[in-house]
Write a protein that binds this DNA or RNA. Structure first.
Lengths: 172, 172
DNA sequence: GTGATAATGCTATACACCATAACAGTCAAT
DNA sequence: ATTGACTGTTATGGTGTATAGCATTATCAC
């Protein structure tokens, strides 16, 4: 843990807690570092929480999107979740195989399939969301309700762009 | 965008902004959802910012760890960054090939290699960190300094466990 | 000492996730 | 009528990470 014989003086002696005046000097000064660590931590917990339902975070989000917006198309789900059209195909195939939603041809546009949740899909989405919510309750136990809301707000400020479609790349 | 003919009533009518009384009802009520979206958004920007340096986020973090704690071992870097020992090998091989650090045998333990940054490594780490910091400045432009510090604090509360080694899984 | 346990650095490998390119079918606009 | 754009889809490659196992070395109990 400690630096051995010929070690250089500790660089971290320069700064204490937050990023100082100008730029970051330590890895832990970067918001992105904590963002990544927290996201991975949460994702692992979410995967474990969803495991009894046989769902992964992405399929759960897709199903939830269909439940929240019945009649949504696959492409619209992709734009809403920031994923690629090609990658939703196997996800929908699995959710379809399990009877969680139905595909209905759009009467006005033959390219589009409208997705509607089934009864089973509604129930599964509710169960899955409850499990993830329970995981979050444990994860955020040290945060007050106000702090959780503030965290959601600050995170939303980061990734939600002004354009309706959330582009996953900054510096557009 | 809008739901066609036989659409069900909008589920989102139940709640407004934050998570209501008990559990989440929408995907956007989950902190983890915003955490993921924000993390992906940041990661894309960090990758783009580091591209001129020929570094990726993980190698950059490894190099930065060596710079911040000269004499650290590979296993210690892995524990600090929450990565697997097996996965740091090619990362160190590349950083070594580029002459960013030196391996020095620990005089007290022949298993351990102590890692020390070279002059080139120090400069590269400084350049890389500056680029990432510049990316973050753009990404967090809408947040006040106080909000950025608060965000760092709240994120740290999520993933930093009580144990010195940050385990990336909740519900231990 | 000797044996059991554990840690380090490393190899090989497999899986999950995401991105890109391309395609046919359909729609809209000029 | 042709061009361009969108949808769903297939195929494919790259990346990040996790797992299993190995030889070497250190530590601890006996």
């Amino acid at each position: 843990m400690t630096v051995p014989t010929s070690a250089a003086p500790p660089v971290s002696a320069a700064v204490s807690a937050g990023a100082p005046s100008g730029r970051a000097v330590r890895l832990s000064d970067l918001v992105g570092y904590h963002l990544r660590r927290a996201s991975v931590f949460d994702l692992n917990g979410a995967v474990a929480a969803l495991e009894p339902e046989g769902l992964r975070p992405v399929p759960m989000s897709v199903l939830q999107s269909i439940v929240e917006q019945p009649g949504i198309s696959a492409a619209e789900v992709c734009r809403a979740l920031g994923m690629q059209r090609a990658n939703i195909v196997p996800v929908l195939a699995d959710l379809d195989r399990r009877g969680f939603f139905l595909r209905e041809a759009d009467p006005a546009d033959n390219r589009i399939q409208r997705l509607f949740p089934t009864r089973r899909g509604l129930e599964e989405a509710q169960r899955a969301l409850a499990r993830v919510a329970a995981h979050e309750a444990r994860m955020l136990a040290r945060l007050s309700p106000a702090e959780r809301a503030e965290l959601r707000r600050l995170l939303g400020l980061i990734w939600k762009t002004d354009s309706p479609d959330g582009a996953d790349t900054p510096d557009g």
